[in-house]
């Protein structure tokens, strides 16, 4: 467990941010609107140089940054990839972002990287393993991290803990903070037939350093039950906005990110989503 007196706490502003896409570079520089901070996927900025790094250096003079890893496989059964940890340490070291986060998921097994956030059972054994991994990440990267709740399409029969209990316990054992993805909460609750508001009520909101909002797609399972797919490919859905409003009413304003990774829209569309988040956050401030 990391000593609370030595690590840097996340200090993103309680304002909207967006997932940064290189095609928006010029417009963000000229007209960021309500967007106060940017998030990058760590793995896209692990080259040696060139445009990605140049853009990041430029933007980091003006915007707070969140480094969001998508490839560490914290939920993996095997050991963490030490080379990848070293790359994260390097990126976080030179960029000095306001926040660093990763997922409660796995993506690497037997040295194959599967490029998706895969689910894990919630058991005492997986809890111990994930806590060890989070400890290791925080030790190597040298700061407190936020761990994000996944979107679920299925559950494991072997699970003995609720996801909220699992996350709360990881945070307790490691001192990490949490990243609450409200779209993931809605997607998982719909897919698994549970109540999203109860999930928010059970979530340790005081540990939340960042909120994610993103779009999802609609599908159906074998029995015609709704199956929502978390694809970050469209506007945030209305019920997710409602759940966000509820969350903010309980937690107070938080750094809140619009994630749009597929079929990335023109800047004004993304900016409008950020404005909508801004108005929710302002209500909480009022």
């Amino acid at each position: 467990m990391l000593d609370a007196t030595t690590h840097r706490f996340a200090c993103l502003p309680d304002a909207p941010g967006v997932g940064y896409k290189p095609q928006h570079f010029t417009e963000i520089v000229n007209d960021a609107g309500p967007v106060a901070w940017l998030e990058i996927h760590a793995e896209n900025y692990m080259g040696d140089g060139g445009r990605p790094i140049a853009q990041l250096r430029h933007l980091s003079e003006r915007f707070a940054f969140s480094v969001h890893g998508v490839g560490l496989s914290i939920g993996g059964e095997g050991p963490l990839d030490s080379e990848h940890l070293a790359r994260l340490r390097h990126l976080v070291g030179w960029l000095d972002p306001a926040s660093f986060s990763e997922h409660l998921a796995w993506s690497t097994h037997d040295s194959a990287f599967l490029n998706d956030l895969l689910p894990l059972p919630y058991t005492e054994a997986s809890l111990a393993r994930v806590a060890e991994h989070v400890d290791e990440v925080q030790e190597v990267v040298g700061r407190r991290m936020l761990l994000e709740n996944p979107s679920s399409y299925l559950t494991f029969e072997e699970s003995t803990l609720a996801e909220t209990e699992f996350l709360r316990e990881i945070a307790k054992r490691t001192g990490c903070g949490l990243l609450l993805d409200v779209n993931n909460v809605f997607v998982s609750a719909t897919n698994l037939g549970t109540d999203p508001v109860s999930y928010i009520d059970a979530f340790p909101l005081e540990l939340v350093g960042e909120i994610h909002l993103g779009g999802h797609d609609d599908d159906e399972d074998d029995h015609g039950a709704p199956l929502l797919i978390d694809n970050h490919g469209r506007e945030v859905a209305d019920p997710v906005w409602s759940l966000f409003e509820y969350t903010i009413s309980q937690s107070g304003p938080k750094p809140s990110l619009i994630e749009w990774d597929n079929d990335v829209p023109e800047w004004p569309v993304l900016k409008a989503e950020a404005s909508r988040a801004a108005s929710v956050l302002e209500t909480a401030n009022a």
Partner: peptide
């Protein structure tokens, strides 16, 4: 995760048992 991974990359492999839909039914095409 070995079982999960095998079934992921092989579309003809059977889906792993022990996964359900949150309501007690097998996960199936989920």
């Amino acid at each position: 995760q070995t079982t999960f991974r095998k079934a992921l990359l092989d579309p003809d492999a059977a889906r792993p048992d022990g996964l359900n839909d949150g309501r007690g039914q097998p996960a199936g095409r989920r």
